[in-house]
């Protein structure tokens, strides 16, 4: 792949690039118009429409996904830049048929109203708790500051992240017993 990239891709709509990446744990090979961002490839070429868009300019955060475990804006990342990346979208957040504790807490505490920013909020919160399992409310607030929500006023989202953190911590303790 190195040489192909080094020689240059011509990003026209009619010619397709292909790349290999990991999406929600699965190795995927995807062909796409090379000018597309990761957002467009996820939604249009991989049919993963759980990733939303509200501006496509990096101004709302609705398109956040995890790339190599870190929350990034898929609307600003050219898909070509994702060769070999490990991408996680909302479709890959559940633990089998079970909701991830964050998803369950969001569902139970009113943290999802219209649900449109919810995938971005959930993935961002997951990255936070993966990194800081006992994040404080200020840390939760700061880490979610890149995703706008117009329905909830955020407070029930903070509550849900805190509840999920407690559940994950309890589960962690059980695992170590």
């Amino acid at each position: 792949m190195t040489s192909a990239l080094a020689e240059g891709y011509t990003a026209t709509m009619n010619r397709h690039a292909t790349l290999s990446l990991k999406v929600n744990g699965d190795e995927r090979e995807v062909a796409f118009a090379p000018h597309k961002t990761l957002l467009e490839v996820l939604r249009e070429d991989l049919a993963l429409t759980g990733t939303k868009h509200g501006c496509e300019l990096g101004e709302c955060g609705a398109c956040a996904v995890l790339v190599d475990g870190r929350p990034v804006l898929s609307c600003l990342m050219l898909a070509l830049e994702c060769e070999g990346a490990d991408v996680r979208t909302i479709e890959g957040m559940q633990e089998g048929a079970q909701l991830h504790p964050l998803q369950a807490a969001f569902a139970d505490l009113g943290a999802a109203q219209c649900g449109y920013c919810t995938p971005a909020m959930l993935l961002t919160a997951k990255a936070l708790l993966d990194d800081k399992p006992s994040a404080t409310r200020d840390e939760i607030r700061a880490s979610l500051s890149g995703v706008l929500c117009r329905c909830t006023g955020y407070l029930q989202i903070f509550d849900a992240v805190e509840r999920a953190a407690r559940i994950l911590a309890a589960r962690d303790r059980e695992d170590h017993v």
Partner: peptide, 9 residues
């Protein structure tokens, strides 16, 4: 969406 371009990495 982005316009077309040639890409090198």
């Amino acid at each position: 969406r982005c316009p077309e371009f040639r890409y090198f990495a």
